[in-house]
Nucleic acid binder design. Structure first.
Lengths: 157, 157
DNA sequence: ATTGCGTTTAGAACGATTCTAATTACAGTT
DNA sequence: AACTGTAATTAGAATCGTTCTAAACGCAAT
């Protein structure tokens, strides 16, 4: 786990270096926080935590850095609606789905189960019938429901 | 097709009546536009078209009406990111997925292919391993890529 | 040490949505 | 058909998340 985060961090730093982008202390701090964060934080979340060590940090810097990572394919941006309309940022580049809790908004990564060929061929057919000529680049799946903790709370009340 | 839209409209009107909500001319106009619109319009889209017949229509009215429908389960709200961050509204209550064009932002409904039991059991297992105790209410799937028209344009340039 | 250009900063601007307080008008009652 | 309670509409302000701006700054190549 810890090593996985470290690898993420190193891939991110390497990418900035390769692209001749500057390794500013602000950027490195953002990367360090972000690559170890499984909670799919908002820009606000990161900003708030960064301000404790960089009192002058600006929102633009957070967004700029996250944009650079997304452009490099080292992170992605999730728009899942719900209470807050804020984007959630995801440093996990392995193929995965998301389980989103209706009550608390928590997001959990779900590794993809390699699909049965029969199922995927049926899906491909449905897609081609409804949207002929559409070329798929990526498929996203979101499970909506209640996480274990919120389900428990709901049963009590 | 036409009858399908009419049925949607009637379900919407019936629901408002049952809930003792008032059938104002503004609401009826919104329903008429919306239930026949396959383009997954934004609130802006609807507002702009409604203003031609209701020059005094307010945004709040559009949002209020769409909220009422969503609450009744007669429509849903899509947050798909992309260029504009505006929500897209969907009057189709049949189970379906969405194909979203990266270039033009168009959204196409894809009816669900009934999944192979083997595949869905594998998915359930992956979900339960990664998010134990999560109770699923709904599953959303989004295909990202290029629609036929945008793919064609891209090949030419 | 110098210097060029990418970065950061604070704050303004922006787009989408929600809220507010005052006005209007539906629909049930007489 | 007039009356009335209450929900709905309106214009505009407020809010939230995000992007832009122009000036100051500082990394890294020389």
């Amino acid at each position: 786990m810890r090593t996985e985060h470290k690898q993420r961090y190193e891939r991110m730093v390497d990418d900035l270096r390769q692209k001749k982008l500057k390794l500013t202390p602000q950027r490195l701090a953002i990367l360090r926080l972000f690559c170890a964060d499984e909670s799919h934080p908002t820009a606000q979340d990161l900003y708030a935590r960064l301000r404790t060590t960089f009192p002058t940090m600006s929102f633009a810097t957070v967004y700029n850095t996250l944009d650079a990572l997304a452009l490099a394919g080292l992170s992605s941006t999730l728009n899942l609606g719900g209470e807050s309309r804020a984007s959630r940022f995801d440093p996990n580049t392995d193929p995965h789905h998301h389980a989103v809790c209706d009550a608390c908004g928590s997001i959990t990564d779900i590794p993809v189960a390699t699909p049965a060929p029969a199922a995927s061929s049926r899906d491909a057919h449905a897609l081609d019938s409804a949207a002929p000529g559409f070329s798929v680049r990526a498929v996203e799946r979101v499970y909506r429901g209640l996480c274990a903790a919120c389900r428990k709370k709901r049963l009590l009340s």
